[in-house]
Each structure stands twice: as C-alpha cells, then as structure tokens.
Simulated assay, not measured.
Amino acid sequence: MEHSLSLNLHVLTARLDRAADRILRAEYNVSYSRFVALTLVGELGASTQRTLAEYLGVTEPSVSRMTSVLAAEGLLDVQPDPAGGNRRRLSLTDEGKRLVTSIQQGLEGKLAGIVARSGVPYDEYAEHTARLLATFEGLERETGK
C-alpha cells in the first residue's frame, strides 16, 4: 500500500524520535524530549519557560516540571526573571553545554549512518530538509502562526 507524503513524513518523524530516544537513554541517560529542551535553551540563549513551552508545544507547568528536573541534574540554570513576575530565565550550565554538544555529535553520526544505509545522499537529504524547514518558517511568518 502506497502512503501519502504527509503520512510518510509523520511515520518517519515518529520513528526517528523513538530511535533517538532509545539511543539517548542507553548512551547518555537522558530522554530525547529533555535533549530537545536543552538544545532549544542553548540555541535560544537565556530563554524563558514560556518561550520553551511554545517551542516544545507543551504547557508551561509541563516545562516547569522538566526544567526543575534538568536543574536538579545540573544541566540547566533556572533563575527568576529580572523583570519580575512569575517568569523564569533559562540557560545551560557548563555541564549542560557539554552534554548537548556530545549528544549532537553522537546522534548526528548515527542518523547520518541511517541515511547512508538508505542509499539517500546525506548532503542532499540535509539540504532538502533545511529548505523544507525554511519554507515552513517563512509561511509561519507570513501568516503569523
């Protein structure tokens, strides 16, 4: 049975997420969702829990629980926002930065191996994926969503 592109993309993304989660739990003792959160904080700079929740597509209480765990593990620094209110500023600790860098290198290598095994040229796949993401980002800016 032939699938549509939208279904194939969904299935591929779900499988990649599960594979990444298995790899990260086994090799780094961290879940993929926590790695993504750490990566977003690192790439967004000193972000807020609200911004992280928006990027992850989860609630602020969920992010609050996750950031508390990551802070307790010494990977994330959580501080009150100088502007006041109930906001929290987030930044990676040195240990968090080292973990993210190590995982990015290891995971990239494993995923590149999977792409190579499929016979798809890695550089072309990476280029096309980046173009698709840029197109979606442009559409989101245009529509405000």
Rank of each mutant, 00 (worst) to 15 (best):
M1D: 11
E2G: 09
E2V: 13
E2P: 11
H3Y: 14
S4V: 04
N8F: 07
H10A: 14
V11M: 15
T13I: 06
A14V: 11
A14L: 13
A14D: 11
R15D: 11
R18H: 14
R18D: 14
A19T: 12
A20L: 03
D21K: 05
D21N: 15
D21T: 09
D21I: 09
L24C: 12
L24H: 02
A26Q: 14
A26T: 13
Y28S: 04
N29L: 14
N29F: 13
N29T: 13
V30K: 02
S31W: 05
S31Q: 11
R34N: 09
R34M: 06
R34F: 10
F35Q: 00
V36Y: 01
A37N: 02
L38Y: 02
T39C: 08
L40F: 12
V41E: 00
V41D: 01
G42V: 06
G42S: 08
E43A: 09
E43L: 12
L44D: 12
G45E: 10
A46L: 10
A46F: 10
S47N: 07
S47Y: 06
S47W: 04
S47R: 03
T48L: 04
R50E: 12
R50N: 08
R50I: 09
T51P: 01
L52G: 01
L52R: 00
A53K: 07
L56G: 03
G57S: 10
V58W: 05
T59R: 08
E60Q: 13
P61D: 08
S64F: 03
S64E: 05
R65W: 04
R65K: 13
M66E: 04
M66G: 00
S68V: 05
S68H: 13
V69Q: 10
A71H: 12
A71D: 10
A71G: 11
A72P: 02
E73K: 15
E73C: 03
L75F: 02
L75V: 01
L76T: 01
L76W: 00
L76A: 02
V78S: 03
Q79T: 12
Q79G: 03
P80T: 05
D81A: 14
D81C: 09
D81W: 04
P82G: 05
A83W: 06
A83Q: 14
A83R: 15
G84V: 04
G85D: 08
N86A: 15
R87G: 05
R88V: 02
R89D: 04
L90R: 00
L90A: 03
L90D: 01
S91L: 06
S91A: 14
T93R: 05
T93A: 09
D94T: 13
E95T: 11
G96D: 01
K97E: 14
L99C: 06
V100H: 00
V100A: 03
S102C: 08
S102Q: 13
L107A: 05
L107H: 02
E108K: 13
K110L: 08
K110V: 06
L111C: 06
L111W: 04
G113I: 01
I114Y: 15
V115I: 15
V115P: 00
A116M: 09
R117C: 04
V120R: 10
E124N: 06
Y125E: 04
A126C: 04
A126L: 09
H128I: 07
H128M: 11
T129I: 12
L133G: 07
A134F: 11
A134Q: 15
E137P: 00
G138T: 10
E140P: 02
E140Y: 11
R141H: 12
R141N: 10
R141C: 03
E142Q: 10
T143F: 13
T143R: 14
G144V: 03
K145D: 10
